[in-house]
Write a protein that binds this DNA or RNA. Structure first.
Lengths: 155, 155
DNA sequence: AGTCAATGTTGGTAAGACCAACATAGCAAA
DNA sequence: TTTGCTATGTTGGTCTTACCAACATTGACT
């Protein structure tokens, strides 16, 4: 899943960028293991797309891409896989025949709920070393760290 | 560099694993931009290897791999690039002719110092939204989060 | 001497995040 | 209305990080 260094150079090991990358490696390793075991071959793109469809209702592929931050071409590929598993349906928008309307199916909703459970369990594993107060702090700090990004992407 | 989602599904956006992945995207984006502008074509593998050589002295490729957490095959490739830039030298270990002894050159040390400056500047950019106290908290929380991993990799 | 582990190398894979180019569809300005 | 721009979905790439498998060679242990 991940080969952590056994010592790590001193100039590297306390730098925030390094800690962030190790934290990400740990988190994404656990996530990958979870998808591997319980995700039926789906990955994070699929999960994000199912979640977006469930929460925002039917949407075009371009809108899904913009909403989830996934590139149009990757949306196409991921939706093809979801469609082949009958988790979503694609139909041509009658008002704009170039556009597809993507809808989540009942089976897709079911799959999404299962993935929700798996992913919730992984949050717990990732944060296990922290107390509840520390978890809240950690989350709040990341939200603050990312607020600038959100603002800039609004414009 | 990174296409942040414009909305992000609710079930995704507050999960720690998501925040961690966005934080990493931001951090590694800034890092990549820094390497792009000032790194003369080097990337993080090169930096980690130079740092390891500078701090621990000459080492075999296998030791470098274990010490830095970089796979043997990736060490080979990265060292070849460093060698072609005369930032490291490789010579056969007389006591074990299968093994290479890798040494950082003065030019390599020089390059490492330049990269140090670039990377230090990026720490500042990454943490900019946080106060000093928050930065310390954030770092401490990640260290705690990763402590378990370090223990397990010792055994 | 024979087996086994370590070393460096080649070549491959996978996910995530990108980009360029294309045909088609609709819109808007000329 | 024709021309030109933009949006859409699709195909087919690239790149980085992180892996794994296989191989010949080398040395060490039995």
């Amino acid at each position: 899943m991940d080969h952590p260094p056994s010592r790590t150079p001193a100039r590297v090991k306390d730098r925030p960028t390094w800690l962030i990358s190790r934290t990400f490696a740990r988190s994404s390793g656990l996530l990958a293991a979870g998808f591997e075991s319980y995700g039926r071959g789906l990955r994070s793109y699929h999960y994000r797309l199912l979640a977006a469809l469930d929460e925002w209702g039917p949407a075009s592929q371009a809108d899904l891409g913009r909403g989830t931050g996934i590139d149009r071409s990757d949306v196409t590929a991921a939706l093809a896989e979801l469609e082949s598993r009958r988790l979503v349906e694609r139909s041509v928008d009658p008002e704009h025949r170039r556009r597809n309307i993507v809808t989540i199916t009942p089976a897709g909703v079911q799959q999404l709920l299962e993935l929700d459970n798996v992913i919730d369990g992984i949050q717990e594993q990732v944060l296990k070393p922290l107390t509840n107060a520390q978890r809240r702090q950690f989350i709040a700090l990341m939200v603050k760290l990312l607020a600038a990004e959100d603002e800039s992407s609004m414009g």
